[in-house]
């Protein structure tokens, strides 16, 4: 299978854009978390595309895949902290809607 690099990058950009929109428009904490995950995975796809663009048979470009591995690892840690915070909010407010938390006002 030989998908052109431009298509892969375009897909990554679309996924990233969707994640961005989800983050900015949705108010449920779980959906917002999922949107951030989508953005991280878009970045991973772009890293792997970059690796394909710069690899040759003799010299593979390994920075991209290794970066992506670290991103997967850190995304898991981030999800753990994020969900813990959402649960802490739910315990206090009985809801995961972000607009419900307004103790602090700019």
């Amino acid at each position: 299978m030989n998908v052109p690099h431009a298509h892969l990058l375009a897909l990554a950009a679309v996924l990233f854009g969707l994640g961005c929109l989800g983050f900015l428009l949705r108010r449920n904490a779980i959906i917002v978390l999922a949107s951030i995950e989508l953005m991280l995975n878009a970045a991973n796809l772009a890293f792997l595309t970059g690796s394909r663009m710069h690899s040759s048979a003799a010299q593979p470009s390994l920075e991209g895949p290794i970066f992506a591995l670290f991103v997967i690892l850190i995304a898991a840690a981030e999800a753990a902290v994020g969900l813990a915070l959402v649960i802490a909010l739910y315990r206090l407010k009985r809801t995961a809607e972000l607009d419900s938390s307004s103790e602090l006002r700019g």
């Binding site: 990233f16 994640g19 983050f23 978390l33 951030i36 878009a42 970045a43 915070l85 909010l89 938390s101």
Partner: peptide, 21 residues
């Protein structure tokens, strides 16, 4: 405190994603 943490987390994770992309 929880609200501060969640706010900081959501915006921080969002900017991490920007950085990564």
């Amino acid at each position: 405190s929880v609200e501060a943490g969640l706010k900081y987390f959501l915006l921080g994770a969002f900017t991490s994603a920007l950085f990564l992309f």
